[in-house]
């Protein structure tokens, strides 16, 4: 009998702790599959963030470090400069990369550090209970914007890919989603391309992944997946934002 599905070697036999319908589990698996398929398990070093993505190191069966909130890109810089032959990627959420760690991400990108950032954008602070994130949409209700995000006082949703695109140091930036099978296939391709960009010495790569958070969006998983297409992707258009590979 032909085996068509199994746990990637780069994942430990552990259960994901994520809420039902969360995108993190899909993204973690995609990364593990890519690492397996590109035969990178023995070269990969993951920098985990603070937030829901923090526990990825419990699932990845690769070398991993947990960084302080927002400092992933700086830590990854330190690792990559010492070990240029390794695959070094940071896994960061929207609070991590687009708020507290903007400076670290922005300047690593500007230096053209040959690292990869997997940027999970779900528009809220998940682990702390659904507060406003820098990527929260206008009018979106969160626990700290109970009557909807008022952009006049709370600012506008930050488009990280577009911001980084103007930096001469960046090489490959793409925004994808994991809300339906076709999108997931594209997301995986983007991760492959990002890792390849790094390994061929072409420079800085980032894949922004729109990811559902049904718990904090107060939606069902299915509604969440639809909401990404119907609402979120309007603010965060999918596709390649920059590619100078």
């Amino acid at each position: 009998m032909k085996q068509v599905y199994s746990r990637p070697r780069s994942l430990k036999p552990a259960h994901f702790h994520y809420c039902p319908g969360c995108g993190h589990g899909i993204i973690g698996r995609l990364i593990a599959e890519v690492i397996d398929e590109m035969d990178l398990r023995e070269k990969a070093i993951c920098v985990a963030p603070a937030g829901c993505g923090m526990l990825v190191y419990n699932y990845f069966d690769i070398d991993a470090l947990e960084s302080a909130h927002g400092r992933g890109a700086a830590v990854a810089t330190g690792i990559k400069r010492v070990r240029p032959e390794n695959l070094v990627f940071s896994y960061q959420g929207d609070g991590d990369l687009a708020a507290i760690g903007t400076a670290e991400g922005f300047h690593a990108a500007n230096r053209g550090e040959p690292i990869t950032i997997i940027f999970v954008n779900n528009g809220v602070y998940g682990m702390t209970g659904g507060q406003m994130a820098p990527t929260t949409l206008s009018e979106q209700v969160t626990t700290t914007t109970p009557s909807g995000r008022n952009t006049k006082v709370a600012g506008h949703p930050v488009r990280i890919c577009e911001v980084f695109a103007v930096l001469d140091g960046t090489t490959y930036l793409e925004r994808v989603a994991v809300n339906k099978p076709a999108a997931i296939v594209k997301a995986k391709k983007a991760i492959v391309k990002a890792f390849r960009t790094q390994l061929t010495g072409k420079g800085f790569s980032l894949v922004e992944i729109l990811s559902p958070c049904p718990t904090n969006w107060k939606m069902s998983p299915i509604e969440s997946c639809r909401w990404i297409d119907d609402v979120m992707a309007k603010q965060f258009p999918l596709g390649v934002v920059k590619d100078v590979t």
Binding site: A74, G78, I79, R81
Partner: peptide
């Protein structure tokens, strides 16, 4: 944090 990365 770069020091931390280099150290690890």
């Amino acid at each position: 944090n770069m020091v931390l990365g280099a150290s690890v």
